[in-house]
Simulated scan of single mutants.
Amino acid sequence: MSSTKLNEQQRLVLLHTARASIRTGLFEGHPLDVEPADFEPELQAQRATFVTLNKHGELRGCIGHLEAIQPLIKDVADNAFSAAFQDQRFPPLNKSEFDQIEIHISVLSPPEPLSFVSEQDLLQQIRPGIDGLILQDGYYRGTFLPSVWEQLPTREEFLAHLKIKAGLPANYWSDSLQVSRYTAESFSEG
């Protein structure tokens, strides 16, 4: 599993692929069909991604994978389509919105489980502005990408809101709580 930084050209290819997949979705109803073998080895590597769509600075869709399940180029094409048409929080993107959306891609590192004995211990290990977190307890699960630090700049806020996103109370604590962290290489159009 590669975690090599992408060069500018590779980033542009991924952004172009994401937009082309959304365009294909608008006109043909399915994601862009990409053949990973047609791309550089870095874009064929199995990597996990999230694709976020913003419209006039507001979230318009965000879908991704926390674990690497397919080649990077295919993950971006599939997640771009899903963010545009299958994010349950929003109606499917329509043609009039296509030119108004900005595409943001996050390529994730493999998750690393954290070991902690208390909430204070966990908070000390979290790296603001760097870490994305996956929080899980039983069937409650949620994640925040590292970019969420822009809205929730303190460790305490970040963790409390992540608990809420996972369906738990903000002050929830349990010995069965599991937290993993990851980093993301993020880039966007423009």
Rank of each mutant, 00 (worst) to 15 (best):
E67K: 02
L162Y: 02
S188R: 14
T154Q: 11
E97A: 01
F27V: 08
E67L: 15
F81E: 05
R60E: 10
E97M: 02
L108Y: 12
Q120G: 09
A48C: 03
P91I: 04
S180P: 01
S186M: 05
N79Y: 00
Q9E: 06
I101R: 08
W149I: 08
A77Y: 01
E28F: 07
F85P: 00
E8P: 00
R47I: 07
R11M: 10
R155N: 13
R127V: 15
V76D: 00
A20E: 14
G190F: 05
D131Q: 14
P92Y: 08
E28K: 09
T154C: 08
I105F: 10
S106K: 09
Y182G: 09
A170C: 04
T52H: 08
L114Q: 02
L145H: 00
G138A: 04
L26D: 04
Y139T: 15
R19K: 15
K74L: 02
E157P: 05
L135Y: 08
T52M: 06
A184T: 02
S106I: 09
Q88M: 13
W149R: 04
S147Q: 12
S115G: 08
R127Q: 15
I103G: 07
L108S: 14
D131Y: 14
E119M: 10
P110F: 05
A77S: 06
R19C: 11
A48T: 02
I105C: 13
F116S: 04
T143A: 14
I134P: 06
Q120L: 12
E189R: 02
Q151G: 00
R47L: 07
L43Q: 04
I130C: 04
I126M: 13
L14C: 14
T49G: 03
L15H: 07
G57Y: 03
A84R: 06
F85H: 10
L14H: 14
E156Q: 14
P41R: 12
N94C: 10
L6E: 00
R11H: 06
P146Q: 08
P128A: 05
R127L: 15
W149K: 01
S3Q: 10
K74N: 09
Q151I: 03
K5P: 02
I69V: 13
T24R: 14
F85E: 10
N7G: 05
W149A: 06
G64V: 08
L162N: 06
Y140Q: 06
A68N: 08
A48E: 06
F50Q: 08
L122K: 12
Q178T: 05
P113C: 05
F187W: 04
S176P: 01
T143S: 14
S174Q: 05
K165M: 05
Q124P: 03
A18C: 02
